[in-house]
């Protein structure tokens, strides 16, 4: 009755060989292609370093003023702008200014990459049901696979550092960007699309004049979610060498410094609230003309 109480498994040797085969082939792949990948991601590395340098080398009053202005022009709300400025000042007063700047620059780069990659994929997905059928399960896997799992191959390929960190964050944070771009375009009123067709629009003209502008509020919701998810990855990214607010949290875990963890955690929450409220308010303003106020 042994076979009933113990689940039948394949031979231990076979399993070991299988694992070895996969690991070996990936290792040789890494050896053969690691340099190529590094070369490929070099522009990303430069972008990251430049963004970080800009945030750190600019005098803090200017950074504060610029963030305040962006918050104001995006949201047109004194409440949100005031919160952003005061929160950053408190963070700075608690000695977390530099780490905050590093994190903001990292989130900025991740968001830019997610937009640059995600929107085109979303557009292609919206145009073809077949592409949608292929991409959707991939996105499901990306969203449910624990991020530590895909950290392993990324680190094997690119080592420890900023670039693999950003890649891991983008993999985790890009699905809503793609999904909501796809959804936004597919939801565009088909009467309006028909009108664009009737006037002889090319598919590029339709995309540019009708689909993208009308999908924009949905795409903005995607950007918002992507930012939030990227922020949720700050601590995990710190494990593979991304500097910023995540690293003190890691140290705090290792050394049981409750207060450090708490302060940095609050800083992350504040940044999240700022990004969230500003981008949502901006999205709402974009939507103003879509509401029906008159019969």
């Amino acid at each position: 009755m042994d076979w009933l109480t113990k689940f039948p498994t394949m031979e231990t040797a076979t399993l070991r060989d299988l694992r070895k085969a996969i690991d070996d082939s990936f290792r040789s792949f890494t050896r053969a292609w690691g340099d190529t990948f590094e070369w490929f991601f070099e522009p990303l590395r430069i972008f990251l370093i430049q963004a970080e340098r800009l945030m750190l080398n600019t005098p803090w009053p200017i950074v504060l003023a610029v963030i305040g202005l962006i918050a104001w022009f995006a949201s047109r709300s004194w409440k949100i702008t005031g919160f952003a400025v005061v929160a950053l000042m408190v963070i700075g007063w608690f000695g977390m200014w530099d780490d905050t700047m590093r994190t903001i620059s990292m989130i900025f780069v991740c968001t830019v990459v997610a937009i640059a990659v995600g929107i085109p994929i979303g557009i292609v997905m919206a145009r073809s049901n077949r592409v949608q059928a292929v991409v959707n399960p991939i996105l499901d896997v990306m969203q449910t696979m624990p991020s530590f799992v895909y950290l392993i191959p990324v680190v094997m390929l690119l080592g420890i550092g900023r670039v693999p960190g950003v890649i891991a964050v983008v993999i985790y944070a890009i699905p809503p960007m793609i999904r909501l771009t796809n959804l936004g375009i597919r939801m565009v009123d088909k009467d309006v699309l028909e009108a664009a067709d009737a006037f002889g629009s090319s598919s590029w003209q339709k995309l540019k004049n009708v689909q993208m502008p009308l999908a924009l509020p949905t795409i903005m919701a995607g950007i918002n979610q992507t930012i939030m998810m990227a922020l949720a990855m700050v601590v995990i990214a710190a494990m593979i060498g991304v500097q910023g607010l995540g690293q003190p949290v890691l140290q705090a875990i290792n050394n049981q410094y409750f207060s450090i963890g708490l302060f940095n955690g609050f800083a992350i929450v504040c940044i999240a609230i700022i990004f969230d409220r500003v981008s949502q308010a901006y999205g709402r303003r974009l939507q103003k003309h879509l509401e029906i106020v008159h019969g």
């Binding site: 028909e194 067709d197 006037f199 502008p213 924009l216 003309h289 879509l290």
Partner: peptide, 17 residues
Amino acid sequence: RRHQTAMVFQKFALLPH
């Protein structure tokens, strides 16, 4: 479609933005 025809729709189909 660009040069020979133009169309008016029941639900107007204007570009809301």
